[in-house]
Simulated assay, not measured.
Amino acid sequence: MSGDDIGRLKGKECDKLIKDNNLHPSWLHSTLGARREMLNKVRDEKAGFVQQVRSHSEGVLAAAIEEGICEGFIKKTRKRKVGAGGEGGEKKEFLRRLLECSVHITPSGSGVFLGLEGGGEAVFLTCAHCMEGDVDDVDPEGGAVPPPLLGRTVDVVTWKGVTFVAECVAVDEVKDIAVLRAEGGGWEGLEHVVVGTPREKEGVVCIGNPYDWDLEGEKGAPRQNGFLPFHASFGTVERRGVKMEGLGGMIHGCWTYWGHSGAPIVGVEGAGEGGGLRCVGIHNSWNDDNGDRHGVDGAVIIKFLKKKGYGWTVEGGVVEENKEERGRVIDLT
């Protein structure tokens, strides 16, 4: 919708856009001119983010490879081989597939593609709190009750700059999991993941959307960090079964920032059952006391997906780890 289109909106039309974009309910009580102005600012912010994604898309794979080199997952001595076929080509293909699986919520938040339903609708996985937006920042004592997360919509973009609107069709706010569905087309070429159970100490890669404004610096004029979208970070599954209020039950070693919530944590073991990369969790939080990065454990996600009728997106269900067959490992060391 163009700025001119927003400028012609009537009151009820503005209110619908405010609700559809999960914006603060206080906006509904502003003048019509103020509502139009605020909607234009939201539109410009989202359009600017999408433009940043599109302008960066040509270099995002190279950036992922370079990050792998810096983190030691791709040895510097083999730098020239990356992308030239053979072992290096395999590593590049793995990262390319991971980028094809990953999506960003505009302008903040992350997710991953699970596949197509029978009717051709695309299904994505993210965190429940990525659906909140400003609408949940309300004063409960004032009688304002946020609408349910189920049915809310978000704008989504792929690493190549393809945009679409996705609706929340299944959610668990306690476990911090949400399934999004998008109708239409344009899904050709997208890779998908299968959700699997993580193994402690296995190597993982995370593709996320680091918010470019510094949210941790001193008070005053905000500054940009220089972060780019679809950032690849590398680490391991460090601990599982962690029980801490407000934090995911799996600790991982991948670097994350504001905006990484919902980002896939993918095992470096090639394809799982069904041909997709193994998504063993999604990032959702970190511990302010020690900096540990936490995610929703793949085993928890599997139970949720099966309960909600999305069992076709998981890797054969949850099995005992000591009986689990390991896939062919892609050596990123």
Rank of each mutant, 00 (worst) to 15 (best):
T197C: 11
E173H: 07
F49I: 01
R328F: 06
G109I: 00
N287S: 09
F113V: 13
S233N: 01
I301K: 02
G235K: 00
S30L: 10
L149I: 08
I69A: 08
L125N: 12
E324M: 13
D44F: 13
M38N: 11
L277N: 04
H283I: 00
K306V: 11
G48V: 01
E173Q: 05
G270D: 05
N22H: 09
W286N: 09
D212A: 09
G3L: 15
R43S: 03
A84W: 15
I6K: 15
L247Y: 11
P222H: 10
C127E: 07
G276E: 07
A144F: 03
E200K: 11
G115C: 05
G83C: 06
T158D: 14
G317Y: 15
A166Y: 04
V103F: 09
G298D: 10
V319L: 13
H283D: 02
C168R: 06
G111S: 06
C127F: 04
K92C: 07
I265D: 01
C14G: 09
V329K: 04
F304E: 06
N21M: 06
H260A: 12
E87V: 12
V174Y: 10
V60C: 12
A128Y: 13
A34K: 15
K91N: 03
C130T: 11
S102C: 08
L305S: 07
Q52N: 08
G115N: 03
V42S: 07
E167F: 03
R181C: 14
L215N: 07
W258Q: 04
L114Q: 07
N290I: 01
L114R: 11
E191F: 05
T333V: 04
E269K: 04
E93H: 14
K323N: 01
P264W: 12
V204S: 01
G120Y: 12
D136E: 15
T333R: 14
G311W: 13
D5S: 03
K41L: 12
E269H: 06
K243W: 04
N287H: 14
N225H: 10
E188Q: 13
A166M: 05
G246K: 05
F230Y: 07
T31E: 09
F234G: 01
F49H: 14
V112N: 03
I330Q: 02
S55A: 12
L149F: 14
Q51N: 12
G298K: 06
L332I: 06
K16A: 12
W213K: 12
K243C: 08
G118H: 07
I302M: 12
P146Y: 08
V194Q: 10
K323C: 02
E245P: 00
W258Y: 07
L190M: 14
G3D: 15
F49V: 02
V50M: 03
G111Y: 03
E90A: 08
H104C: 11
A144T: 14
H294E: 01
K91S: 02
V154W: 01
N284A: 08
H129Q: 10
E87H: 15
I330D: 00
G196E: 15
L61P: 06
D4T: 08
G88A: 02
V165W: 02
I207E: 00
P147R: 08
F227H: 14
T333A: 09
L215D: 05
D20G: 02
H192Y: 10
K92A: 10
A128W: 12
E121K: 06
M244N: 06
E93L: 11
D214S: 13
S30W: 05
V242T: 09
